[in-house]
Structure formats: structure tokens, C-alpha cells
Design a protein around this nucleic acid. Sequence first.
RNA 1: GGGCGCGUAGCUCAGUCGGUAGAGCAACUGGCUUUUAACCAGUAGGUCCCAGGUUCGAUCCCUGGCGCGCUCACCA
Length: 498
Amino acid sequence: MTDLAHPDRLAKLAALRESGVDPYPARGVAARAVAEVRAGAGSSEEPGPLVGERVTIAGRLLGLRDFGKLIFAPVQDRSGRLQVGLKRDALAEWWPSRKQLDGGDLVGVSGTLGFTQKGEPTLWADEVRLLAKALAPPPEKWHGLTDLEARYRRRYVDLWASEGVLEVFIKRSRILSSLRAFLEEQGYLEVETPTLHPICGGATARPFITHYNALGEDRFLRIAPELYLKRLIVGGMERVFEFARNFRNEGLSRDHNPEFTMLELYEAQADYRRMMELTETMLERAALAVNGTTQCEFRGRTYDLQAPFARVRYGDLFEEHVGCAFDDREAVRAKAAELQIEEHGGYWKLMNDLFEELCEPHLEGPVFCTDYPLEICPLAKASPTDPRVAERFELFVAGMELGNAFSELNDPAEQERRFAEQVASKDPETPGEVDLDYVQALEYGMPPTAGLGIGIDRLVMVLTGQDSIRDVLLFPAMRRQESETHGDAPPVPGEGEA
RNA sequence: GGGCGCGUAGCUCAGUCGGUAGAGCAACUGGCUUUUAACCAGUAGGUCCCAGGUUCGAUCCCUGGCGCGCUCACCA
């Protein structure tokens, strides 16, 4: 027991058992969704088909308004809320046990659907069954849970006690369904690839490391599924996608959670132009599916996800906001010096820092920023018309990166050379070894292919109007609390390098 | 990691210019057959985040720590 289990409620639990009532019965009740019952009730002026019928609902008792011989109590399930009316005369046998009932308890109620004098749809009960006793009291009924930490730690309370929270996660689920349905229509196969990677590739990020006992080897939690999905293209699957949980051992912010969900997909015979079309069509549909409109309110502004999205070249943006060509090293370094941006990862890193600082904030979007400098795209294919740039785009909404796509590099020798460059850079965020198995896969031949990654959490933020990534994650990353467990915490291995 | 702020009852919060604390809701007792933040009367509930320091005395002041929030940095 934790100290949230209330003594009064524990006493009621004992009293229930004493009187032969199982406070945690083995079976639930066959219940109808509350929203369905409410819809069937209509209004007191125009009663619906369920009025006068006997129906059963099940859910959480949110409170009790006791009038002596009459009690009103709202019951809430996943679909909504309905008032239950408990009358002594209709529940003579059960009546004394009403004292054992508390707000927060899970109950099944059967009765006749009707209305009150004020016209409130009400289930007039003839049977009340306790389905599970709540020992911990619910949050304050008017303010609910407002402490952010408590809301995230106890999402199991937040979901029913805070307005609109469940709705966000219902929408999240529908967004995933919409994306999945769209891709399946397009002939894609959903696949699952390893989460434990021997080499940490497919993106640039610091990894989490774990140990594989059976193999006696360390593994990286994947930072991206990219290289495995492209192996499947070599394997002839041609159109694949994965909703991948990725892990990046980096900071938390309102746009970042160390574990996050990425939709990655790859399509043979496609290039990045096709990916742009697919992206805008897919997102437009998801918006319509979940909101009924392509307009969404996010961080105080309105964005329209109606296809087609705007396109702007990286180089053009660079010239506009930095004032020179991205490969004009002298000018770029001068501008960086002017802005006191330090060079700590070579020229191309510096150039991109400048881009992020000066250009990205202008990408309100939705907009595809296209044709990135080749040097910052180690897995992308060069443009056939301009060898300085890669066929790559990123999708931005509200200055936030939502997606990343490119025509995939499929020349094994070129890929090996770029891997070797990364390894030589000694950057802690790039792989420490060349993934020769991947190079070998390319040696068997990968067709012309394009790939796309969509940050699902950020997409959900935009489509549900949530400012923080933590509001679209059921259980966002939180520091461990001592009070969460019994027993001793496991030994903590030494911290990785800072 | 830096800056700012917060930590008081189960929940939402007040308060003590330093003398160990209050309200509303929830709970408990009683009353009430049409409420919907029900109402009325009463009762109970606190390691005032933790540890040091100053002081006759600290929940309040100081220092440190822990936790959380916002923000900046980091993070393609």
C-alpha cells in the first residue's frame, strides 16, 4: 500500500468483504458505451429510442450528490459521462451499502433511461455493482490535477480527471491509423526491424548503450531504423514502413523526448519529389481524419496542412537570410564570426549552425526545405543537376522539423567512403565504425529508392494543438522517484561521457 | 549545464515582517427525493521537501542538497 490509500476507504473495503461483497470481482458487466446511451436518450423535449429502456453502463463514479433518499452520481467511461440516479425506493436491498461507495470507484449500473426535472438524461438505477474499489481518492473535483509533474507521473489519473487529455491520445491513435491506412493503400508493407543495433547508424545522435547477455556484446538502442529498412529494399520488399521507437541520449525539451516515435518509410523507384507528394497527401489526410479540417492551431498560429505544401531551396534560404552562398566559406565564416557562432565541427557543421540560427525560424510552414548541401547528408544521393546538393528535404511546421527525406544513396563505394569520413571525424554523435554489412547489402544492388521519416510525436502536437511533446506522450521521460518501488534500486552503471 | 521561479492537508491554494498553520474541495457524522462545483450543521486530517547554520525559538532568514516548472544552451 502507498500512503495514497485512504484509511476511510480501507475501512469500507473491510466492511464490504465483511458483508460478503467482493470489492474486486472477477467479472465485469456487459455495458454499453456511455456516449451511445446518451445519444439514444435524445433530449427531454425529443426523447430518443433508448428512453424507457433498461440499459447497463460501466465506468468510474466521479462523485456522489446525496439527498438522503436520492443520490445523483456522474459515471464516466472512455466515451463520455452520464448521470446515474439512485433512489432508495428502487434499490431497497442495496441501499445500506451506498455508504461503502466513494468517488473514484468503478461501478456497473443498470437501470431505466430517463430524465430529471431539469431535463438531464439520467439512468435511474435498479442495480448497482461495485466493479473495483478505489482506495486512492480522486483529485479535487473542480481544478482536477493541475500539477504538471503529478499529471505526467500519474497519467492513469490525468486521463480521466483532466479535461481533454484522453481526447489527445484518442487523436494520436487515429492519426497512426490514418497514416497506416494510407500507406497500405499505397502498397506498403508494415515491418518491424531490430531495436538493438550492433552499430549505431542511420542518423546523428548520441546513443543509449545496453548489454546483450546471451551474446556477450554491447548493443545500441537504435537512433533510427533507416539502415535496416533499406536492407529490406535490397531484399525486394520495395515499399516498407515502420513506426519506430527511436532512442537518443540527448536533452529533453518541449520538442524533444529521448525516446520518440518516427514513421520511416522507403519506396523503390521513387525519388525525393515523390516523397514530397506522398508526405503532403498523407498529412493532409491525417488532418482531415482527425480534425475534419486541414487547418490547425498550434502555438498561437494557424497552419494549413492542405496539399501541396510550399517548397523552398536550402541554398535560396541561405542566401536570403545569411547573405551568401552556403559554400562561400569565407563569407560564411565572416558571418559566423559576426554572430559569435563558434566553429567546432568543421565548416559544414558551422554552415548548418548558421542555417539553423538564421533560416529555420522563418520556416513557419508547412514548407519543404529542399536540396541540402551534400556534405551534411551522408546517406543521400547527390542531385543529378547540381552535384553540390543532395536530393533531400526537411518538412517544417512552426519552425519545427517534422520530417526528413531523401533520394537514397545506393552506390556502395560512395556510401563506404562517406561512412569512413564520419568515422574519421571522431564526432561522438556519428558511428564509430563503418557498417560494412550495410555496404555489402548495397553491393547486391539497391534500386533507386527514396525514404522519408516523420516525427510522429511532433505531428501529433501540431494536429492536436499541444505545445509540449510531453502532452502527446502518455508517459513522458521523468526522473525516477524513490517512492515508486519497494526494495533496493538496481546498481546504476557509471555514467556515459557527458 | 546556466538563469528565473516553485515545493504548506489526498487535491487546489492562502499564511506566518521568526513564536510549530488556515480555507475550499475530497473524507467522516447528522439532515435533506431532482442535483449537476448540490446545500446546511458538525468532525477529523499536517515530518509546512530534506540537511545544516543563525536564533531563546525556524515552516518563514541564510547555506547546501533533492524534486519540479519556465527559459536559454545542447539536441540536423
